[in-house]
Every structure is written in structure tokens, then in C-alpha cells.
Design a protein around this nucleic acid. Structure first.
Lengths: 149, 149
DNA sequence: GATTTATTTAGAATGATTATTTATAAAAAA
DNA sequence: TTTTTTATAAATAATCATTCTAAATAAATC
């Protein structure tokens, strides 16, 4: 995990440079996604922000997330069915591994993907900008639970 | 591409064995997804079926697609934003490559993924059931168009 | 052909996300 | 400071894909 405070500092700086206003709601959201351990949904971020700013609207969450997404500072993750999840700590494409039973989403470093993408580009003639690689299955704990039931 | 008639025959047989009824609408849908060159959306399949069965409901499309999906005979593809696409010809996970400009979706054989999945399983302890691997970018034609504009 | 019951239909409901409109507050100008 | 401009927030309506529901229909079996 990248240093959350470093991410926070970078994102606030970029917003300022872009001429965007640093409202309290925005700052609260930046803190949440920079420091988040997991991959929170918009709804989850909404709940967290409402603790400090009870009048906040969900639309503001989406607006700010989209703003950061367009700046390349937040990665939006789309999995089956479930709504989007957001990653503000590692905003570049990287593989994930998702437990179908408990829903946890783990990051995974897999550097070989760069080579795979290159090979794909050469084979197809595409100019590849990004990729999604997600593995689905059961985490060790959920395998155990299943075995014991 | 697998022989579409072979796929059609297999899917009708499995449905029959499962005790499912072979309604004309279902048969029409089977033909469409077995023979489809691309990766049609539910909406697209709906349009095609309505040519022969004008009273068909969209719900029937989704019901049948979900039935086949649960049987493992149709692969549901989820990409950003857009609704789901369906593949009834190659119903096992395989990488795709999507053009962000024209929206075309190409299949791509990439056998090394089996090894990658295995490595991921060993590293994480997960029991991996399937994966999604999608590359995004510009196809050769759209690169050209962009260069000429 | 009659019966049983899965399936279809049509439309309402859902849920995540986006758009819209008005209100608010921060920065800039006077 | 006051005024003005402008970005942003809030509330709510709208959208879109998908699922649910209840009533009508028709496939397979006897």
C-alpha cells in the first residue's frame, strides 16, 4: 500500500492546480479514499462522510469520484452485479482477486501483465490503454467454512 | 469459432435433459446466441427475436439467458457502463479486447492465462473458479481515423 | 384431448448512477 | 468591505438495465 498521506497530499495539490475548490466534503472524501484499506462503494463512502457532514448528498460523492476518476487519481472497479468500487490508493490498473462468498477484494501485484498487454497489442494491432484482470473464487477462510458445513 | 450448429444441438439437448420446456422463443434465442458472430446485448437479442415473435417480452430474454448462464452454457460479459453482453458460442472465460471508439469486442485466445490463474491460486490460497481479462484501447481502424482527424 | 405446471407476458419495481434545478459559499473585483 | 462571479452542494427527478409479480398461456405427459 502506498503511503495514504502522500496520496492525500498529491490529490489535494492536483485539485488545487486544476483550479478546483477544496470544499470540506471533498477533503473528507479524499481522506477516505486515500486511506481506505479496502475498495469502498459510493454508498459506503457516503455513510462515512455523513458522520462528519450529515447533510451531504450522494450526488456529491459521485461528482467528486468522477472528477478524480477523470483526473486518473481514482480507479473505478466494475464487478458483476454489484455496484462500482473505488480505489484511490492505487489508481492504476492492477489485478484483483474477489471472494464470491464473503465479497472481499484483494489487490495483487502481477508485473507479468505488462508483458501480456504488450503481446496482445502486437497480435491485434490495438493501441491498448488499460486492462481489467479479475479472478473470482473462494478465499482460504471461505473454503474452510464450506468444508465444515 | 466453434460450430454453431453443434452448440445449438448441445444446448437444446441439455435443456431437454434438465426437464426444461423448449418453447419457440427459447429455441429462437438459442439459435441467435449459438450463431452470433459478436457478443450481443439482451436488447439486441430482443430485437432479433421480435422479428419472428413480436409479442416476446424482454423478461423472457433475461430469464432464458440467466437459465443458460447458470447451466454454464452462456458467458455473461460485464464491461464498464454498458449493459451486459452474452457469448453462447464460447461459454468459458477467455480474454477480450474492446475498442473504446467503435465498441467492437474481439475474442482473443491466450492460453497462458491458465498458468497465470494457477500462479495466482498458489500465491493467495484462493480456489479460483473463473477470471475476467479485458483489454481496452483503440482498434487499428479507429487509430487511423483518429490520426486523419 | 385434458391436465399439470413451467413459461410467457406486460408492466411495475428496483437500484445504481446521472441530470437538473436551485441554493450556497468561495474567490475575484470593485 | 461590498458586490459580483462562478464553482460546488443539495435535493430531487430522471434514467437505464435488470428483476419481480401476477395473470394468462401453452408444452409435455397421461
Amino acid at each position: 500500500m502506498i503511503d495514504p498521506e502522500e496520496r492525500l497530499e498529491r490529490m489535494t495539490r492536483l485539485l488545487r492546480e486544476k483550479g478546483c475548490r477544496l470544499t470540506p466534503q471533498r477533503l473528507a472524501l479524499l481522506k477516505i479514499i486515500a486511506r481506505a484499506e479496502g475498495h469502498p462503494s459510493a454508498e459506503r463512502i457516503y455513510e462515512l462522510i455523513k458522520k462528519d457532514f450529515p447533510t451531504t448528498s450522494l450526488a456529491t460523492i459521485y461528482n467528486t469520484l468522477n472528477l478524480l476518476k477523470d483526473m486518473g487519481e481514482v480507479l473505478e472497479l466494475n464487478f458483476d452485479n454489484l455496484g462500482s468500487r473505488y480505489d484511490g490508493n492505487k489508481p492504476y490498473p492492477h489485478p484483483h482477486i474477489i471472494c464470491l462468498a464473503c465479497g472481499q477484494i484483494l489487490d495483487s501485484e502481477f508485473m507479468a501483465m505488462a508483458g501480456v498487454a504488450l503481446e496482445m497489442a502486437q497480435k491485434t494491432g490495438f493501441h491498448i490503454t488499460h486492462y481489467h484482470l479479475n479472478f473470482f473464487g473462494l478465499c482460504p477462510e471461505c473454503q474452510q467454512k464450506k468444508a465444515n458445513s
